[in-house]
């Protein structure tokens, strides 16, 4: 994880960088971020945070955790990862109806139809969990009184502005600058 802090004095930036790194490490999220950029504007005052997740933080799909094959007009799924049993059954039930999903063994599920798209069903969206946990961790990094917050999310990250004054145009300009630097598609 690369942490960069700009805007304060060299000493202030360094201490905030160290604090950010330590808190992310303690939370176990340091390996999930590729870049954390904090821009401090203590004059306003406002803190801008840009987060970019690592590429391996992607949603888990049925195809990733199960062997799928057709068998006499049905689809047979053999789930290889025990921790996702519940989620798979729940998701398949939602997609095909509970009456069409049958669990014959602990790790074997039959669907009463054949569907090629079954492997693309998202079982567990890790990105969303990482996003939520990262936001939660940020509350303990950003100054406490800065409770006016505005987010802009994109597929593999987000930008946040946190301040203790009402929102002003300046915020959006800085957000746009960070967006250009980070790239990514917006408003997901």
């Amino acid at each position: 994880m690369e942490v960069e802090v700009r805007g304060g004095t060299r000493e202030e930036n360094e201490s905030l960088r160290k604090l950010t790194e330590e808190i992310f490490k303690d939370s176990g999220l340091a390996k999930k971020q590729s870049k954390v950029l904090i821009v401090v504007d203590i004059g306003i005052p406002a803190f801008y945070v840009g987060i970019k997740f690592k590429k391996d933080v992607e949603p888990i799909k049925v195809g990733d955790i199960a062997s799928i094959r057709e068998q006499s007009g049905k689809t047979k799924l053999q789930i290889n990862e025990e921790r996702y049993y519940d989620q798979v059954i729940e998701k398949l039930g939602t997609f095909y109806g509970k009456e069409n999903v049958e669990q014959s063994e602990r790790n074997i599920i039959y669907i009463n139809s054949t569907d090629e798209n079954v492997r693309d069903i998202v079982i567990y969206d890790l990105t969303e969990e990482i996003r939520e946990r990262t936001i939660d961790v940020l509350w303990s990094i950003l100054p406490e009184g800065f409770k006016v917050r505005h987010f802009k999310h994109f597929e593999d990250g987000f930008i946040l502005v946190s301040t203790d004054i009402p929102q002003i145009r300046e915020f959006y300009n800085v957000i746009e600058d960070i967006q250009k630097e980070f790239g990514g598609s917006w408003d997901v």
Binding site: P45, P143, E144, G145, F146, D164, I165
Partner: peptide, 9 residues
């Protein structure tokens, strides 16, 4: 009670 922040301290 409100020792944090800059403008709201």
């Amino acid at each position: 009670a409100r020792g944090y922040g800059k403008t709201i301290f």
